[in-house]
């Protein structure tokens, strides 16, 4: 723009901002997202609820079937019993992700955010990081508490229980945490992609969590192999406590397929975010 410069120099009176040396950086966007996150009360309520559900249902489920008398007909493993709350937390976190992703579109805040960070992607990546930083520790503590307290209740009542040191148990616990977090991240990404909370929840909860089971019931057996590659089924391969996958994917393959889904959704959202009008 050398041809423009002489004109600019003539305007020696043009104003220089006192924040001209304050650069926009990724870490500053991290800080901005953290301020956004912590100033919304419902975020904390959701995390607390997730924690209570996992720990509470773990204790409840371990206590109620005392002596093996009550409950339904099916026999659930001690591992499944202490992690009862995780099934519900999947729903909570998937919905949380959708709400978290679509939220700024609902309020119009997204215009402020993308005016401040015009490249947009740092906002998305920081939302991913922040969501993980908030949800992962919550799940980690809740799941291990549920496991520890739940198994000690069961043990106290004479049931043989798995220990943390047993083969596959630690992996299965972490696998469950990773699965819940992963679905939350898919929800977040879909929320930003579709921009509407209700649609994001419908896609994540309906499409990702329930549709595979539904398809499994209606489609012929020849399809079942393909269905195993859907996120929820792939997740089933690494969340079981006995090292045996519930389907024909190995835990490692299941994990890789699940991660591939997350990355795929992230890529789609990134592309749309950069290309579309706000």
């Amino acid at each position: 723009m050398s041809t423009v410069n002489p004109v600019n120099q003539e305007k020696s009176s043009s104003y220089t901002s006192r924040f001209r040396d304050n650069k926009l950086t990724f870490l500053r966007v991290t800080n901005s997202e953290w301020i956004k996150f912590r100033s919304i009360r419902s975020n904390w309520i959701t995390l607390a609820l997730t924690f209570l559900v996992i720990v509470g249902f773990g204790i409840l489920s371990a206590s109620i079937n005392r002596g093996g008398g009550g409950g339904g007909g099916e026999v659930r493993s001690p591992f499944d019993r202490v992690l009862t709350g995780v099934n519900l937390s999947v729903l909570i976190i998937a919905v949380f992700g959708g709400v978290f992703g679509a939220r700024e579109y609902g309020s119009g805040m997204i215009k402020s955010s993308f005016s401040a960070v015009p490249r947009r992607l740092p906002v998305f990546f920081n939302k991913i990081i922040l969501f993980s930083k908030a949800v992962f520790p919550t799940l980690l503590i809740a799941v291990f508490l549920a496991f520890t307290i739940g198994t000690s209740i069961l043990k106290h009542n004479g049931t043989a229980v798995p220990k943390l040191g047993d083969p596959f148990i630690l992996r299965a616990l972490l696998g469950n945490i990773f699965y819940v977090l992963g679905l939350g991240l898919i929800g977040l990404s879909v929320g930003i992609l579709v921009r509407q909370t209700a649609v994001a929840i419908a896609i994540t909860v309906g499409g990702v969590l329930f549709l595979p089971a539904l398809l499994g019931a209606v489609l012929p057996n020849s399809w079942h192999k393909a269905l195993e590659y859907l996120p929820s089924n792939a997740g089933g391969a690494f969340t079981a406590p006995n090292g045996v996958s519930i389907n024909s994917l190995s835990p490692t393959t299941g994990g890789i397929v699940f991660i591939a889904w997350i990355i795929g959704v992230f890529a789609l959202t990134s592309f749309s975010l950069v290309k579309r009008d706000v």
Binding site: K23, T25, I35, S39, I40, M109, S112, V117
Partner: peptide, 23 residues
């Protein structure tokens, strides 16, 4: 648009969040 603000947040925190992107 005047409505480019998250309704769950205070005015102060809104400005904090926007300003934080440039420190």
């Amino acid at each position: 648009e005047a409505k480019s603000v998250d309704k769950g947040r205070s005015a102060y925190n809104h400005l904090r969040a926007v300003g934080a992107t440039m420190g």
